[in-house]
């Protein structure tokens, strides 16, 4: 078995291989450099940073900057730390991801298994949602949110992200379900299953990989969104990204770089976590449909 595999592999000499790995290692380290700078400077007292030596390891290890960024740093006018805004982000992201994914799945199901006249045109129009620049919808969206009475709330912000996300999630699920055998749906129809029963009992249990893709995509985009957060949220409903900006901007007097670094890492952690937990399904889901098997 091992011999057979060696025969088919491209033969490279040992030295060439070592060289390739060395270069790759170098690139890898270079890519990780910013993370290194952020991490070590977030656990240093401020004077170690201002005294130069950004790249040095901390002489006095301290987690005070993390605590301060989380619970007592000055954000805008109040010394609340990032924690209330972290929860704001959660309140926006969780419903927005869940609802847009479910709607995308139902759309994909209808567009592939319950075909109707002009369904392709409708799908084409929905794809346009993926290409609409954020800037041009800002003012009409603000007006709509005002009319609905949810301007400046996390629910309003979640709604914006749901509407924006449907285009992407529909695209994912439609393409995934397009290769899902229609005979299964027909068999279920003959068995007497209804529209939602077929969706719930037959399609959804086989949709794991594409659901992961949709969730990761939506989660990262919504969590990292700044423009909608800055435009549609008020002081009490701002998401993490806007709060982080305020933290960095509003410090009067001394710039507390160590706190800023800690805050930036806290803001990035959830997306990192999602990648680590579900990353391998992400690739699998993206490949599904394109490769048969």
């Amino acid at each position: 078995m091992a011999d057979a595999m060696q025969d088919t592999a491209v033969r490279t000499s040992r030295t060439v291989r070592i060289l390739i790995y060395l270069i790759l290692l170098l690139f890898g380290l270079f890519y990780l450099l910013p993370l290194y700078v952020m991490l070590i400077n977030s656990v240093k007292p401020l004077n170690e940073i201002t005294g130069g030596g950004m790249m040095n390891l901390p002489q006095a290890l301290t987690f005070a900057p993390w605590a301060k960024a989380w619970s007592s740093a000055q954000i805008g006018v109040d010394p609340t730390g990032l924690s209330p805004y972290f929860w704001n982000s959660i309140k926006v992201v969780v419903p927005a991801v869940v609802i847009s994914t479910i709607l995308g799945a139902i759309n994909g199901y209808v567009l592939t298994k319950w075909r109707f006249k002009y369904d392709k045109i409708l799908f084409g129009l929905m794809l346009f949602a993926c290409f609409i620049p954020f800037q041009i919808v800002l003012i009409p969206m603000a007006r709509m949110l005002g009319l609905m009475g949810i301007a400046g709330t996390t629910s309003g912000l979640a709604l914006v992200h749901i509407v924006y996300g449907i285009g992407f999630t529909t695209l994912y699920f439609r393409n995934y379900y397009a290769v899902f055998p229609t005979e299964l749906v027909r068999a279920a129809q003959i068995d007497g299953a209804g529209f939602f029963q077929i969706f719930w009992r037959i399609l959804l249990p086989s949709s794991g990989p594409i659901a992961v893709v949709s969730i990761i995509w939506q989660f990262t985009n919504i969590w990292n969104d700044f423009l909608f957060g800055a435009s549609f949220a008020d002081a009490t409903s701002q998401p993490m990204t806007v709060a982080l900006n305020n933290l960095v901007q509003s410090s009067h007097g001394v710039k507390e770089y160590n706190v800023h670094f800690a805050g930036a890492i806290i803001a990035a952690l959830p997306t990192l976590l999602v990648y680590v937990v579900a990353g391998r399904y992400f690739v699998r889901g993206l490949m599904a449909g394109s490769v048969k098997g």
Binding site: E183, L184, A187, A188, I190, P205, S206
Partner: peptide
Amino acid sequence: VHPSRRNIAMVFQSYALYPN
């Protein structure tokens, strides 16, 4: 009449067994 109310059963070429 809806397929499920015709009292018929069908065997498909691909068998169409529910994979889950």
